[in-house]
Design a protein around this nucleic acid. Structure first.
Lengths: 204, 204
DNA sequence: TGGCCCCCTATCCGATCGGATAGGGGGTCT
DNA sequence: AGACCCCCTATCCGATCGGATAGGGGGCCA
């Protein structure tokens, strides 16, 4: 089995290399997305490509998309130590073979790699079922600045601009500004539409 | 690898038996929980025990609990064609090795079994991330007159009073009147709250 | 027949909203 | 050092909303 590991953390890359070698898995390392794609282009197809979510060249899920497109049919999985749950979900929806938090024990990681190479989709249960209460980020919220999310939340509670301003400790004109910009970002024409869009997206 | 399959559907049991045999997995069948536990007690430890959620003797998750307690340390997974997501989550929290919907392709099922036997926890991503669509029935619409419901519907689509009036072929002041009365009826202070309440109630 | 409910229309007013415009301050990149 | 983004504040204006008030018309029922 041939696996490509792309991660800008040398230590992690070397550790995985070691583990996989013990498991008789052939490893090709890379330290960023461009060199990873070069390695893919310049060798016969890999069984699995492991991409670090945060390494140079990834630019969020764009890198995943490119790897899926140019991966010569190889299965592509995402690794991350910090990415929230919805990133994992999006990745899986986009066709990723799996999502590996870096909190995973090395042994489980090897198992997961074998599992994914068999054509299955992998994601750790506890990570995926973790309540998004702590990280309520979703595809919609990603386009908004933190402040705009707060304002949108107040809006969804039916508050007036003035109330929202008071609750956030800022002035009303500022709230109105955030409103205007977040309308544009989510494609709403008025506050009610904005609230419905947020609700529809499962936000709040 | 030794696996025990407990399911009261003969056809399914036989099918799994066949598949596992091809994969060089040793299968012991059972048609209900008591006989499954007998098989466990009367043989050396299994690598994995597959329990049907709906078979005789299970009594919901009690059967899982018993199997986990008396399974001689074997890993125990749940199978079901009908169980909702929360059952799967509970099972995993109780220490089940995994949850297998019967919609799973046989090949994936075999992979999952191997995966679980390696000590990992398995559940299909799409099944676990599917939102359990709860439909809280609404005593809300009953309190409103037909016209008010129509107006509320327009409101939920983010329309302005003027638009709603045009769509319904009435004048704007009338729409505003309906708005005011329906606010009172459903306990909203402004249109956004009204829209959220309607949405929350599952209307539209 | 009067009472009640729903539907419709209208005018007026203060509050709020939506948007434009014009600033200043801080942070992070290159 | 600029470029850029996010955050904050401010003023002005027209549009809209929320609500009060005052009507008219129809149907249903005791």
């Amino acid at each position: 089995m041939r696996v490509l590991i792309a991660d800008d953390h040398d230590l992690l890359r070397d550790t995985l290399d070691l583990w996989f070698r013990q498991e008789k898995i052939d490893v090709t390392p890379a330290r960023d997305l461009p060199s990873a794609m070069l390695a893919v282009a310049g060798a016969e197809a890999f069984d699995l490509i492991l991409l670090d979510y945060g390494m140079p060249g990834m630019n969020g899920l764009d890198g995943l998309k490119r790897a899926l497109a140019d991966g010569k049919g190889a299965r592509v999985a995402l690794m991350s130590g910090i990415a929230p749950r919805d990133v994992a979900e999006q990745a899986l929806e986009m066709g990723a073979a799996g999502f590996l938090p870096k909190t995973l024990p090395a042994k489980s990681l090897v198992n997961a790699v074998r599992f994914m190479a068999m054509g299955e989709q992998y994601a750790p249960i506890d990570f995926m079922t973790a309540t998004p209460e702590v990280t309520p980020v979703n595809p919609l919220a990603e386009k908004l600045s933190p402040r705009e999310v707060q304002v949108l939340k107040g809006l969804c509670e039916g508050k007036a601009n003035k109330e929202i301003a008071r609750d956030l400790g800022i002035q009303e004109p500022t709230v109105k500004l955030h409103m205007k910009t977040l309308y544009r970002k989510i494609g709403a024409h008025n506050r009610t539409q904005a609230a419905m869009i947020a609700k529809e997206a499962g936000l709040f």
